[in-house]
């Protein structure tokens, strides 16, 4: 079983295979502590593992401080067995802060996919990237900056296809704090829509 059935982002050309890593797709969600990136990583991984049924490893890196420091969650997805649990060369990097973008851009594959918060990341080190103003959308469209992480999951789904929409919906329902399910589902839908738009922009 391979992952070629997934729609691939054509123009950005993020591919699932190369000679070094077969049948692996590596994602990093990065930004600052408090942006909910580790939770986003867990949700992404849970959707892939428990709904889509693929193998998946989620790891994370954080300092002793709970808020403000650099934070990242990594997700490795494969239809086959996953040996090395951490990313070797990223297929997709989500950066929600300038610092994260600067630090991790070099871990991206040559044709890897860079998605940034276009409001928070103003200097992008490449011409090949997708910008979506996740934090602004969260604030103005949903009315809660805390859901930027879920919007970004929707966008990742629409752009990369590495996780199913149904999977994310299921997991957002499962994991959202009680009373915030609707807001989080709306955020997910917004992310899906924005992701599709961004993808079309690249295609056209």
């Amino acid at each position: 079983m391979s992952m070629t059935s997934h729609p691939k982002p054509d123009k950005t050309g993020a591919s699932h295979t190369d000679s070094e890593s077969i049948d692996r797709y590596e994602i990093r969600l990065s930004g600052s502590g408090g942006q909910g990136l580790i939770l986003a990583g867990v949700m992404l991984a849970e959707a892939v593992a428990t709904v889509d049924g693929k193998n998946c490893v989620q790891t994370q890196s954080y300092g002793p401080e709970a808020r403000g420091g650099a934070s990242r969650a990594d997700v490795v997805i494969s239809s086959g067995e996953i040996y090395y649990p951490k990313p070797m060369q990223l297929d997709l990097l989500l950066a929600l802060s300038q610092e994260a973008c600067d630090n991790y851009y070099r871990d991206l594959k040559e044709n890897g996919l860079l998605i940034v918060d276009s409001h928070l990341v103003t200097q992008v080190p490449t011409t090949r990237w997708i910008g979506i103003p996740f934090s602004q959308l969260a604030r103005h469209e949903i009315g809660n900056t805390m859901v930027a992480n879920v919007i970004s999951l929707g966008a990742i789904c629409a752009i990369s296809g590495v996780v199913s929409e149904a999977g994310l919906i299921e997991v957002v329902k499962r994991r959202a704090p009680r009373g915030t399910e609707e807001k989080n589902l709306a955020a997910l839908q917004l992310g899906l829509t924005e992701g599709k738009k961004a993808k079309d922009r690249i295609r056209s």
Partner: peptide, 9 residues
């Protein structure tokens, strides 16, 4: 630490 905190299917 990695194994302890890592999530896997």
């Amino acid at each position: 630490e990695v194994l302890g905190h890592m999530r896997e299917k």
